[in-house]
Amino acid sequence: MADSKALLRLPGRGEFIDRHSLIVRVTHWINVLCVTVLLMSGLHIFNAWPRLHWGQVSGSSADALFEIGSRRDADGRLAGFTRIFGHEFVTTGVLGVSADARGVMQGRAFPEWATLPGPYWLPMAREWHFFFAWLFVLNGLVYLLHTVCGHHLRRDLLPDRSDLAGLGRSFVDHLRLRHPTGTGALRYNPLQKLAYLVVIFMLLPLMTLAGWALSPWLDAVLPGWVNLLGGRQAARTLHFAMACLLCAFVLVHVFEVLASGVWNQLRSMLTGRYRLPGDDHDRRA
């Protein structure tokens, strides 16, 4: 293959390679901005109705799969609770009841420091959310075109046979915080490929689709399509659940960046240049 000819002499450890294409780098950082704004404005929008249901409609509080709320305790003080599948937790201080900018405790689902805007201002939260939703989708389309029509998908993301065979070992390596070095670091590792594929082709599209399902106008375009997601309230639940999974992915992603040489990784996502890491233990990849 053309790629292997170009790499007849594989670069060694300590050498610089071109890791990320310009399009991947630009779309990555636009995506970071979009996801951050979408998450925080989304939490604000959630606060307006802090319950999640399944099906078309939102029934009573008792029917909710998930709810964040507040009530007065025996001493008359505001107490926050979070209920997940019938299991209730006291979450005063963060969820249900939290301090506003002046330090006054108030009943609200997600705290002001986590939402955009901070104080309750639903129409403005919607403005932020929908503007950055468009940017997210357009940016995502540029990335997908580049990835699917270019060679990013086939060369970098799709696992080959050796990746699948090395999946178990990759898993153990992750748990031991050992990262591939030398020529092994020329490519994404098997678990990394799998995580990126799941996020890019399942999680983000499903989250977008579930967001569209919340629009009564879009629901009418193809009457009944929302039933495929379980109904409008189910779509709202899926939209929220996908956002939670995305947060989990970002936490692991940022942790891996920190654990595998933060400056090298950051430089490669900013300038494209990546220095192949060496390893004192001289582990063969």
Partner: peptide
């Protein structure tokens, strides 16, 4: 029909 409030709830 289903009534969808800007707050997020729905009822039929």
């Amino acid at each position: 029909t289903r009534h969808d409030c800007v707050e997020g709830w729905s009822a039929i």
